[in-house]
Design a protein around this nucleic acid. Structure first.
Length: 287
DNA sequence: AGCTCGACCTGCACGC
DNA sequence: TGCGTGCAGGTCGAGC
């Protein structure tokens, strides 16, 4: 269920559990996720050390010692689980079920399991380590928690876009990492309607004001979600099969018909469909 | 060039 | 209980 904060939580958890670990072998139960895996995927990785765990948007980049990078995206339903060295199932050990597609066996017996019921996730090898030119990464937009993120950037990026703000913010070529939930939450905080046309962001009596509000809202929402996700890292590291995903107390997402939480507002949260996805917002507070 | 929409998958909650 | 329907946190790429 990963948007940027969840992927960042996974990244930090993997780093804590597996940095420096060496792959002994890779057990494949699928040759294809969203895309076919490289034919030599398992063989290529065997013997490699995992040097570092990075993130770009919603992608995980796992740095190998000598052979470039392992790229992974969790899609809608992907997750990684770290398991301690094997115990027999009758002693509480783990046993594979049908959506556990890839098992990385580390030296020392720790295992990393990739599970993904819907198989919208992907993995690939970036053999030369030059991830910026990878076809899936080359046209990605800015990191929303990076230095480039501010009102001026948003206003400039939006100025010729004749599309709703919702679609604008979901476009990974502009900002990399936002998904349906955090876009809804950020727009609520910025008091901007998901239906507002993107190019109007910089209009009004004080140009830049709306864009500034939106930039701040995005940054805040993501930071808070990561901070809260971080607190579940212990569960993650215990690897009890639960990722300990951040269960955010969402302010608008999934709250159709419930009261708006803005003080003094009597309106109820509305749900509309925009480019095939649900948007939740307060029709009174968000303009 | 920019935008919308279908397609890719499985599981689950719901109504009949 | 069983079945059909719609929906789900993503995104690529065809087609307008």
């Amino acid at each position: 269920m990963p948007e940027l904060p969840e992927v960042e939580t996974v990244r930090a958890g993997l780093e804590q559990a597996l940095r420096g670990a060496r792959i002994r072998c890779v057990e494949m139960h699928r040759t294809s996720l969203r895309f076919p895996l490289p034919e030599d995927f398992a063989a290529y990785l065997e013997g490699e050390r995992l040097n570092a765990f990075r993130r770009r948007g919603k992608y995980l980049l796992i740095e190998l010692e000598n052979k470039g990078l392992l790229l992974a995206h969790l899609g809608m339903s992907g997750r990684f689980t770290v398991l301690p060295p094997e115990l027999p199932p009758e002693q509480g050990g783990w046993s594979r079920t049908r959506h556990d597609h890839i098992i990385f066996h580390m030296q020392g017996g720790t295992r990393l399991v990739y599970t993904d019921p819907r198989r919208f996730g992907l993995m690939d090898l970036i053999r030369d380590g030059n991830w910026r030119e990878h076809r899936l990464l080359a046209s990605m937009g800015i990191e929303p928690l990076g230095n480039a993120m501010n009102g001026a950037f948003l206003a400039r990026a939006a100025q010729n876009r004749r599309m709703p703000l919702k679609s604008f913010l979901l476009d990974q070529r502009i900002i990399a990492g936002l998904g349906n939930i955090y876009v809804c939450e950020a727009l609520y905080r910025a008091r901007l309607s998901p239906r507002r046309m993107a190019h109007t962001l910089g209009q009004g009596a004080r140009p830049g004001l709306r864009a500034e509000r939106l930039a701040r809202a995005i940054t805040q929402v993501l930071r808070e979600a990561i901070a809260a996700g971080g607190s579940s890292l212990r569960d993650y590291a215990q690897s009890n099969g639960e990722l300990g995903y951040f269960q955010h107390a969402f302010t608008v997402y999934g709250r159709e018909g419930e009261p708006c939480r803005t003080k003094g507002c009597k309106a109820r949260i509305a749900k509309i469909t925009q480019s095939g996805r649900s948007s939740f917002f307060c029709p009174h507070c968000q303009r």
